[in-house]
Simulated assay, not measured.
Amino acid sequence: MSDERPITRIRVEALHPAFTDQARAWAGRLALPLDGEAEFALQLGEQGLQLVELGPQAPGPVRVDFVEGAVAHRRLYGGGSGQMIAKAVGVQPGVRPCVLDATAGLGRDAFVLATLGCRMTLIERQPIIAALLEDGLARAVRDAEVAPIAAQMRLLAGNAIELMHNWQGEPPQVIYLDPMFPHRDKSALVKKEMRLFRPLVGDDLDAPALLRAALGLASHRVVVKRPRKAPVVEGGKPSYALEGKSSRYDIYPKKALKG
Results as ranks from 00 to 15, higher is better:
130 A>Y: 05
195 R>G: 06
99 V>F: 05
251 I>F: 02
160 A>C: 04
188 A>Y: 06
198 R>W: 02
130 A>C: 10
109 D>E: 13
101 D>R: 06
149 I>H: 10
10 I>E: 07
126 Q>V: 01
163 L>Q: 14
241 A>D: 10
23 A>D: 04
146 V>Y: 03
225 K>Y: 10
13 E>F: 04
50 Q>H: 04
228 R>I: 12
175 I>E: 12
164 M>L: 05
111 F>D: 07
68 E>S: 14
101 D>N: 15
4 E>V: 15
115 T>C: 09
173 Q>S: 06
135 D>I: 02
96 R>K: 15
120 M>R: 08
180 M>P: 02
125 R>N: 14
87 K>G: 13
240 Y>E: 07
180 M>G: 07
88 A>P: 05
198 R>M: 13
201 V>Y: 01
112 V>A: 07
64 V>P: 13
2 S>H: 09
61 P>Q: 00
130 A>R: 03
182 P>D: 03
193 E>C: 10
217 L>R: 09
218 A>D: 10
190 V>Y: 00
102 A>G: 13
4 E>D: 15
226 R>E: 00
249 Y>R: 04
247 S>Q: 14
148 P>L: 05
186 K>A: 08
128 I>F: 01
127 P>I: 06
197 F>H: 11
247 S>E: 06
65 D>Q: 13
163 L>Y: 11
8 T>V: 15
54 L>T: 07
49 L>C: 01
132 L>D: 02
123 I>M: 10
76 L>F: 12
17 P>G: 06
224 V>M: 11
81 S>K: 15
43 Q>P: 04
257 L>S: 12
55 G>K: 08
67 V>P: 12
85 I>K: 00
67 V>D: 05
206 D>L: 15
191 K>N: 09
131 A>Y: 00
209 A>H: 14
157 A>E: 12
164 M>A: 05
149 I>M: 11
250 D>C: 01
117 G>L: 06
97 P>T: 12
192 K>G: 03
79 G>V: 04
167 W>I: 09
75 R>F: 01
35 D>G: 03
56 P>R: 13
24 R>M: 05
88 A>M: 13
220 H>G: 03
230 A>D: 09
112 V>P: 13
107 G>L: 04
98 C>Q: 14
27 A>F: 13
149 I>N: 03
59 P>T: 07
109 D>C: 11
227 P>D: 01
258 K>A: 09
72 A>T: 03
122 L>Q: 11
22 Q>E: 12
176 Y>N: 07
84 M>S: 12
129 I>V: 15
160 A>E: 00
117 G>D: 09
159 N>P: 02
4 E>F: 07
83 Q>V: 11
106 L>W: 07
178 D>C: 03
68 E>Y: 10
187 S>K: 15
76 L>R: 13
107 G>Q: 14
69 G>S: 09
26 W>L: 12
57 Q>M: 11
174 V>C: 05
242 L>F: 04
141 V>E: 09
43 Q>T: 15
222 V>H: 01
215 L>T: 05
62 V>D: 05
140 A>F: 01
186 K>T: 06
8 T>W: 06
25 A>F: 06
122 L>A: 00
183 H>G: 02
124 E>V: 08
172 P>N: 02
1 M>G: 12
77 Y>D: 07
178 D>A: 12
